[in-house]
Amino acid sequence: MRRVHLCFLWWWLALIAALLDIWPACSDQHASQRGHELFQQNCAMCHEASNLDLKKQPPKLEGLFQRKALPSGAPATDAQVRKTIINGIGTMPSFQGRLSDEDVNNLVEYLHQLN
């Protein structure tokens, strides 16, 4: 009987360990999925469009974090991208009041995967 209990104990421990192991990946995936939605709703209309009647064509954002610098010349860091989204830069509008901190984090997570 004791042996059966030990078996169950090991089984539960293995399950918990597995869940703990995959939990961060699930969380990242959720953030990225939400980031993708936010990107489509807020960014794609400029950054994915072409030949807009604008003074400056918005840059494409694929591989943003693989570059040494952002299109503005600032370092390609999470903090700088967050700042750009919140405050705007050049002709890019500020998204202050439109996106929450969580939204911005999800967007940054998605931009990391946009290759």
């Binding site: 807020n42 209309m45 400029c46 469009a49 807009l52 009647d53 604008l54 003074k55 918005p58 705007g88 002709t91 509008p93 500020s94 998204f95 202050q96 009041g97 439109r98």
Partner: peptide, 19 residues
């Protein structure tokens, strides 16, 4: 308004004025 995110509206107007 400067936070306008619609490329065909405020940004377009300002771009036209710039030209």
């Amino acid at each position: 308004y400067t936070r306008c995110p619609m490329p065909n509206f405020c940004p377009r107007l300002s771009s036209q004025f710039a030209k």
